[in-house]
Design a protein around this nucleic acid. Structure first.
Ligand SMILES: NC(=O)c1ccc[n+]([C@@H]2O[C@H](COP(=O)([O-])OP(=O)(O)OC[C@H]3O[C@@H](n4cnc5c(N)ncnc54)[C@H](O)[C@@H]3O)[C@@H](O)[C@H]2O)c1
Ligand SMILES: NC(=O)c1ccc[n+]([C@@H]2O[C@H](COP(=O)([O-])OP(=O)(O)OC[C@H]3O[C@@H](n4cnc5c(N)ncnc54)[C@H](O)[C@@H]3O)[C@@H](O)[C@H]2O)c1
Lengths: 216, 216
DNA sequence: ACAACATCGTTACAGATTTCACAATATCGA
DNA sequence: TCGATATTGTGAAATCTGTAACGATGTTGT
């Protein structure tokens, strides 16, 4: 199904659109125009319509887009047929915040296992997620067919833990450690680099650069 | 001083380079080639050399770049002359993790005040940062000349708190709430949208897209 | 029934960003 | 001293990304 190549940026915007559309649906709004969605997302109307080409969904003039139908169409592109599972490595300050945030939020993409090397955490259930010892990562990730991981271990451990994840079959990593991971070319890594982002903000705050950022 | 227009992406990469260079310096390495820095950062050597043009620093053939000199040159571009101060709004799970992470790390860009509306937190010092009541935000931000803020309040409160920050003179916001903030055009907003990023990772993990991401 | 209208889908364009390619050059070894 | 060599800096080409423009189209009001 679907296009072989949807760009990075487009995927990010579609995910954002979907969240905005869900908000609209909760407000009882069932139709939306490209310029309305654009305004909510902070992009141009042309951008929204262009992104819709990737989805393959067509609205109608005068009515615009059907909110529930569009949510479903975006889901057809972004979501996998069967639910995906994610693992989290490193249940420290950030790891716990993240598990709390995602707990019970996405049925199609949930954190189903956490790993740490701190014996005090292993065996406990934190924010609805069971914590295992890092040494058991391989078998558990393989058994549960986990392909997505969130990496929140200290920078010094990040590469080593990433290697374990990759060996166990993980194909996508959301990396919070301020380190560039070395992974095989078929593994996708997204770096959330807070230090870099904060320096960016500080720089442009000083420069007075006119705002507006696409979703990271 | 310096160029009027350095791109978004270039600023992010320069911040990354600087961190990598600091690591090298700690290892006692005092010279580096563009292809080495490129490999560490996950970009091409041509990209590194192109970014150096924005900095205005020149290396020499055969020797490459001087690590300490390059760190200084990047600092001349990225850092402000006098230290910048940042505020954090919302000392919840994520806010506490972030203050812990940045505590005592950057002398030139430190979190110097936190704000919350939870009376239990107000008045306490958490991770070396004093917590004030959100209602006192305006005067304190103005007095301390704070221009940069990190926003980690619940999504429902984000716009309102952002308005307070902007009124107090903040010109750059690192926003973690899954909401698109409305701010005047002279205020720079960087969205760290974890939900969007996780969906991106899940999507490309499935697609088998060949990796490699620029710094966010 | 049909004209007026606002919006959609798509193609063509423009701008930004990255990569390529190569002349210029500083250093090392003979 | 001087040639050999690997690297730099940068103009030009290529690619990626977003914007603009416009014909096509469905709806509404009369
Ligand atoms: N806290 C933040 O806001 C923040 C911001 C930016 C980046 N980061 C990065 O995120 C990562 C985690 O940050 P944190 O503040 O949560 O740190 P933390 O020290 O609170 O948590 C790290 C966790 O990883 C566990 N751990 C250590 N070694 C391990 C190993 N080999 N295998 C499995 N688990 C291991 C520790 O037991 C701990 O629970 C770090 O790389 C940090 O640089 C954090
Ligand atoms: N925790 C995560 O990993 C994570 C991930 C992605 C996004 N986010 C977003 O970050 C934000 C914070 O997340 P969290 O998990 O820390 O939530 P949290 O509920 O733990 O923390 C929110 C904090 O904000 C304070 N607060 C509430 N209203 C306020 C107001 N009007 N003024 C000042 N302070 C106020 C609360 O007292 C609390 O301390 C949310 O918008 C969340 O969606 C969090």
């Amino acid at each position: 199904m679907s296009e072989g190549s949807v760009s990075d940026k487009t995927v990010a915007r579609l995910s954002l659109y979907r969240r905005l559309l869900s908000d609209l649906l909760n407000q009882g709004i069932r139709n939306v125009y490209s310029h309305q969605l654009a305004s909510a997302a902070g992009v141009t109307a042309a951008q929204v319509r262009r992104d819709m080409m990737a989805v393959g969904y067509s609205g109608t003039p005068v009515r615009g887009y059907s909110v529930p139908d569009l949510i479903e169409s975006i889901g057809n592109l972004l979501d996998s047929a069967q639910a995906q599972s994610a693992a989290l490595a490193g249940l420290g300050n950030l790891g716990r915040a993240i598990t709390a945030y995602f707990a019970g939020r996405r049925p199609k993409l949930a954190i189903v296992a956490a790993f740490d090397n701190d014996p005090y955490k292993v065996g406990r259930v934190i924010n609805e997620v069971e914590c295992f010892h890092i040494n058991d990562l391989g078998p558990i990730v393989e058994q549960r067919n986990i392909r997505v991981a969130i990496l929140t271990v200290p920078a010094s451990e990040a590469q080593q833990v990433a290697d374990m994840l990759v060996r166990a079959g993980v194909k996508g990593v959301l990396n919070f450690a301020p380190v560039r991971l070395r992974v095989p070319p078929d593994v996708y890594v997204e770096n959330m680099d807070m230090a870099v982002c904060l320096e960016k903000v500080a720089f442009f705050a000083r420069q007075g650069r006119t705002t507006a950022e696409a979703p990271s």
